[in-house]
């Protein structure tokens, strides 16, 4: 059987999936590319786990794997948020119409 923490994490997973579906369904096709790059940056949250493994007292293999993970995940986070920001800054309203 699964222990209590695993059940708690599964509960979080299922609820987060529902929230995700609800929230993402409202994103218009206009913004689907920024949605992908932005959500990609969010999935770079793996960096948190990578930091814990790279930074704690560990054997060299774990430290180096952790280091590589920190690099990849940080590229994801920084690259993802910056490129999304760059794209979103381009979406402008027509200055003549004021809808």
């Amino acid at each position: 059987m699964l222990e209590a923490p695993a059940i708690a994490a599964l509960t979080i997973l299922v609820l987060a999936l529902f929230v995700g579906v609800e929230v993402i369904s409202k994103v218009p096709p206009l913004l689907h590319t920024p949605l992908m790059s932005g959500s990609n940056a969010v999935s770079g949250i793996t960096v948190v786990g990578a930091i814990l493994l790279a930074g704690s007292e560990n054997n060299p293999l774990a430290t180096w794997l952790g280091f590589a993970a920190v690099v990849f995940a940080t590229v994801n986070v920084v690259g993802g948020f910056l490129v999304t920001n760059r794209m979103l800054a381009m979406f402008k309203k027509n200055p003549k119409s004021d809808k």
Binding site: A9, I12, L13, A16, L17, V19, G20, V21, V23, I24, L35, M36, S39, N40, V42, S43, I45, T46, V48, G49
Partner: peptide, 12 residues
């Protein structure tokens, strides 16, 4: 944090 963010992106 990983579980929540991961499932948001997975759903998206």
């Amino acid at each position: 944090a990983l579980v929540i963010s991961g499932s948001l992106v997975g759903a998206s």
